[in-house]
Design a protein around this nucleic acid. Structure first.
Length: 422
RNA sequence: GUGGGUGUAGCUCAGUUGGCAGAGCACCAGGUUGUGGCCCUGGGGGUCAUGGGUUCAAGUCCCAUCACUCACCCCA
């Protein structure tokens, strides 16, 4: 048989109800903060990601699903959402009327990595992006929005990790002094870090190999190299967070994997997901809009990993099937036709309805209704048709009443609304 | 891309030195000719991941492949 492709997954009910719950909560929450939904496509020109994420990042080097499009263009299934949102912001000149714009997106991303717990080749993210605001208070507000979002979902045990990556004015000096220091200690670094040292020395900072950590512990911190305006910005973010009572941890070794980040970088981490501890991550990318051919506008955003978040929510609240409010049990052909009619009308009238057309014994139908968690069953057989009244049974209290067949929908609804005297 | 672990019924898993393919749960039917849960009885279900090899004989041993999984790398 044909199986689903490696690293991809089916999300089945009842788990889908958890996803719907998370997505709906995110939508209302983010919209309360002034965000509106944007839905960019999942396919973009490869060049978009090469230019935004960075040519020498792992994502671009080996993790993108890229294939030939028409003519000479290479197409890529998006490995992240920010580049698309920025592209749309520029392409549709969304900055023209008002450079300040806030968007969120929900959808799948694709990265060809080796799958493991909390990491899939297609994974779902909720992204939020803000353009045209450089105020540090916005940075803090975004983190606040994230943490209250998690709180709404009753997800706890999360830590905010915060860092500043500086800007093109101050980062080069730091980079230079870092690589200088690391080169001097290169004999103590792991093979991966020696490679990083060449390509992107910042990445050495978050290496987990003990030997490297030891070296890194004495490495200079970006925070010591911040220029005056970056320092002012970072201080304002911190004090705004304190003002909003959002606990955070300064993490000078927090490095983000994408090249475009500047200044504020943050990650929301949990200890409950094994090696993949980041539930959300984001930061400023003040130069990306201009880099991609747009006006010079500051921007900031974050991504929430929905697969990981769903794991956290489900660990706390295992999903459950709701069960129909009324389960129709027809006995006989005449009853089935009548049931198709009335059950459809009842469902259309807003009552969660289920039917069993299998024609099996009443005992079998009852067992199935019970197993599915039906609150009530509605029995129709020859006797009920003759009486012009069906039997409605409350599965919990085992009370049975007769409900007139005429105006059945209204009668059943009226009965359901009666308070149960269990 | 690298390393470890695991693949037997729908699910969770037993399966001894190589010797008839098993259990629990779930499902179906009956016990109750029109009433669920508990109980009793019976039943249906298997390419033992796939392909080769060794052997009189392979779920079991060997090789390869695939998948799942955890970790590294990296990231959400």
């Amino acid at each position: 048989m044909i199986q689903l492709v490696r690293g991809f997954k089916d999300i089945l009910p009842p788990e889908t109800s958890v996803w719907q719950y998370i997505e709906n909560t995110a939508k209302t929450h983010f919209e309360n903060f002034g965000f509106r939904e944007m839905r960019p496509p999942v396919l973009e020109q490869a060049a978009l990601f090469q230019r935004s994420i960075g040519e020498h990042t792992d994502i671009v080097e080996k993790e993108m699903y890229t294939f030939a499009g028409s003519r000479d263009t290479l197409l890529t299934l998006r490995p992240e959402a920010t580049a698309s949102v920025v592209r749309a912001y520029i392409q549709h000149k969304l900055y023209a009327a008002d450079p300040v714009a806030k968007f969120y997106t929900i959808g799948p991303m694709f990265r060809k990595e080796r799958p493991q717990k909390g990491r899939y080749r297609q994974f779902q993210q909720i992204n939020a992006e803000v353009f045209g605001v450089d105020a540090p208070y916005l940075d803090a507000q975004l983190i606040f929005m994230l943490m209250t979002f998690f709180a709404r979902l009753s997800v706890s045990g999360l830590q905010v990790h915060l860092n500043s990556l500086g800007c093109p004015q101050c980062r080069p000096a730091f980079k230079e002094s870092l690589s200088h220091m690391l080169s001097a200690q290169s004999d103590k670094l792991c093979a991966d870090c020696l490679r990083r040292l060449e390509k992107n020395p910042l990445r050495v900072l978050d290496c987990k190999v003990p030997g490297c950590r030891k070296v890194v512990a004495e490495a200079p911190s970006m925070l010591d190299y911040l220029c005056r305006s970056c320092q002012v910005h970072f201080d304002a973010v911190k004090s705004a967070l304190e003002g909003m009572a959002v606990p955070y941890e300064i993490d000078p070794w927090l490095v983000r994997g994408l090249d475009y980040y500047t200044r504020t970088a943050f990650e929301i981490q949990t200890a409950e997901l094994g090696a993949q501890n980041a539930v959300a991550g984001g930061g400023r990318y003040d130069n990306l809009v201009e880099m991609l051919g747009g006006p010079s506008q500051p921007a900031i955003g974050f991504a929430v990993g929905l697969d990981r978040l769903a794991d956290l929510v489900m660990a706390k609240f295992p999903p459950a099937e709701p069960g129909p409010e009324v389960f129709f049990l027809p006995m006989g052909e005449a009853a089935m036709e009548m049931t198709a009619h009335w059950a459809s009308l009842l469902a259309d009238a807003g009552v969660r309805t289920e039917v069993d057309f299998s024609g099996r014994s009443l005992k079998a139908l009852m067992r199935r209704a019970d197993r599915m968690g039906a609150q009530n069953v509605l029995m129709i057989g020859d006797q009920e048709i003759a009486d012009r009244a069906v039997v409605l049974r409350n599965m919990k209290t085992r009370d049975q009443v007769q409900v007139p067949l005429d105006a059945l929908v209204e009668n059943v609804k009226a009965h359901l609304e009666k308070p149960n005297v269990a």
